[in-house]
């Protein structure tokens, strides 16, 4: 994130005063993270889309409750979104999704919560990557391609793949630094 850009907390405060542009910026930053959290929780894309919309409505409505003295914006957003998704789950229970909370092969609730929080922060941070860096991260981490395969697919030299990957990780480290405090 550039230093000149408003923080999440500043955007939430602006949303609280009815600033639609600030809301749009929050949406841009968090659309992926919100949908990812909803998918993780609900396990169904259609319901996750609905839950994502409800989550952003909840952000709009709840922005006045944000207190910057109690922490940065990301944890507040995460809590509001998580609650909105949980409320939606209660309204329209899904037997498949409910299995998540049952003992067995699934992680325990604290592990699941930590994993969700990690994914939330990381997926949000991906928004800082420029268009030419994001593909090398996606291909390297989530499509299982080697650096050589990435170079071949993108039609760029292997050294460029490494340079872009290193640069992307550095950007992500910068973006995640504040969130990890």
């Amino acid at each position: 994130m550039h230093a000149s850009e408003p923080s999440d907390g500043q955007l939430i405060e602006r949303v609280a005063s009815g600033d639609k542009r600030a809301f749009e910026e929050l949406h841009r930053r968090y659309a992926r993270a919100v949908l990812g959290l909803a998918l993780r929780r609900l396990g169904d894309r259609g319901r996750a889309e609905d839950a994502s919309q409800e989550a952003f409505v909840a952000i709009w409505r709840s922005a006045r409750t944000y207190d910057p003295s109690r922490g940065s914006g990301a944890p507040w957003l995460y809590a509001v979104v998580r609650n909105a998704i949980t409320d939606g789950l209660r309204r329209t229970p899904n037997p498949v999704a409910e299995l998540e909370d049952q003992p067995g092969g699934e992680p325990d609730p604290s592990e699941e919560a930590e994993a969700s929080w990690t994914a939330w922060r990381v997926h949000r941070a991906l928004e800082v990557l420029p268009e030419h860096e994001r593909p090398v991260v996606e291909m390297g981490y989530w499509r299982g391609l080697s650096q050589s395969e990435i170079a071949l697919q993108l039609g760029i030299p292997l050294g460029t793949v490494k340079t872009r990957t290193r640069s992307a990780l550095a950007r992500l480290a910068d973006a995640l630094e504040g969130e990890l405090r």
Partner: peptide, 25 residues
């Protein structure tokens, strides 16, 4: 960077790359 590397692995793919998602938002 290693810390970020581990976080990326822990987080898993964003929704548009996951098995059940597209980025409608």
């Amino acid at each position: 960077l290693l810390r970020v590397h581990e976080l990326l692995i822990q987080a898993g793919p964003p929704p548009e790359l996951g098995a059940d998602a597209t980025v409608v938002a």
